[in-house]
């Protein structure tokens, strides 16, 4: 197998507009974007609060979140599997082997990333504006909201880092999704499957499509950021 095989396979995949491939791409995007949205809802305020509030154990919590940025996907997948399994505490929901289970696992994976990076960004801004905000009589709660809004362009990087992690991981979605054809098969699990079948050009071709997709999303985010920054400063 040569690299040209993989590239021509990738081009054929994109050009051929195989509906099965687009289903897989669409599900990958939907799952990872939903996880990023949920993780941002939790992680951004959490990170900002960690930056602003002072309480005992804060240092330990910051270290914990920094450490959990490296959560092994396969462990998160296993934990969510046991949770959602019919024999597990949340088995009654019947969520195992559904896209919803994949969103849950990826959300858990990326909350620490979004929170830890947001904490750093907001803390830097807080250091700069703390006196000013206090003199204006802003409560810490109010400051958290204001700081998130003021640092939104920098926070976009935290969100994109989360998205990168979500769309690239295979360990968690493989376990909780089951890689079911037409239901829970995403780009990374499809790549793992084709590698298993020994169809390396197809696996690498899918990989090239995935990487192109991630680069495209990041380019779109940068462009949006540039436009928004120009308009709103």
């Amino acid at each position: 197998m040569s690299e040209r095989d993989a590239f021509s396979t990738a081009l054929a995949l994109i050009g051929g507009a195989d509906p099965a491939l687009w289903g897989i791409v669409g599900l990958s995007l939907a799952v990872s974007l939903a996880a990023v949205a949920l993780a941002s809802l939790v992680g951004l305020p959490l990170g900002a609060a960690l930056a602003v509030f002072r309480f005992p154990g804060r240092g330990a919590l910051v270290t914990l979140f920094n450490g959990m940025m490296g959560l092994p996907p396969v462990v998160v997948g296993l934990a969510v599997y046991l949770l959602l399994s019919r024999a597990g505490p949340l088995g009654g929901l019947g969520l195992l082997f559904t896209p919803a289970a994949m969103v849950i696992a990826q959300t858990i994976l990326i909350v620490p990333i979004v929170a830890a990076l947001a904490r750093q960004t907001v803390e830097d801004a807080w250091r700069e504006y703390e006196e000013q905000m206090r003199s204006l009589g802003a409560t810490p709660r109010r400051s958290v909201a204001t700081l998130i809004w003021d640092t939104r362009f920098s926070l976009a990087t935290a969100v994109l880092a989360g998205l990168g992690r979500a769309s690239a991981e295979v360990g968690a979605v493989m376990i909780v999704g089951g890689n079911i054809d037409g239901l829970t098969r995403v780009m990374t699990t499809a790549i793992a499957l084709e590698t298993s079948k020994g169809d390396l050009p197809l696996a690498l071709g899918l990989g090239i499509v995935l990487i192109a997709l991630i680069v495209l999303i990041n380019a779109a985010a940068s462009a949006m950021k540039a436009v928004a920054q120009a308009r709103f400063g």
């Binding site: 939907a30 939903a34 941002s40 896209p99 919803a100 809004w149």
Partner: peptide, 22 residues
């Protein structure tokens, strides 16, 4: 207001995804 819109978009995305499973 912008923040609220973001929260709204996030919630809708999550729901849209859970729907086919339901």
């Amino acid at each position: 207001m912008h923040r609220r819109r973001f929260v709204g978009i996030a919630a809708i995305t999550a729901l849209a995804l859970a729907a086919p499973a339901a």
